[in-house]
């Protein structure tokens, strides 16, 4: 981003607007789906899928992760792996113990 020329910045701005519209649409979709009161598992899967999609858009375009340096990717990959380890806490707690 450091060498962003005026032209490329203008191009970015157009992308931001597109992403913004998409995010709004996804917000409405996820609210709409929630009114259908799907089963618990289906509802969780759909809601988390849409949330992940929105989060990816924010991270990729607003936070410029789509064109970031390797070092940042490496740090975030490590974080992502350890985030998954955090999610193992409930698994390790309930698996093999019974609810």
């Amino acid at each position: 981003m450091e060498t962003a020329s005026a032209e490329s910045v203008r191009k970015h701005v157009r992308v931001y607007v597109t992403v913004f519209v998409t995010l709004m649409a996804l917000t409405l979709i996820t609210v709409a789906i929630s009114t259908l009161h799907l089963g618990t598992v289906a509802a969780i899967l759909v809601a988390l899928f849409i949330a992940s999609l929105k989060a990816s858009l924010v991270a990729a375009y607003f936070m410029h992760l789509i064109s970031e340096k390797k070092l940042i990717y490496a740090a975030l990959t490590l974080t992502a792996v350890l985030f998954l380890v955090l999610m193992v806490i409930p698994v390790s707690h309930f698996a093999d113990r019974g609810l």
Partner: peptide, 22 residues
Amino acid sequence: SFVVWAHHMFLTGMGTVISSFF
């Protein structure tokens, strides 16, 4: 060091599979 924490918790009623893992 991030995947060994539960070896402090062997006596909390953990099952054999999970305690074997840790």
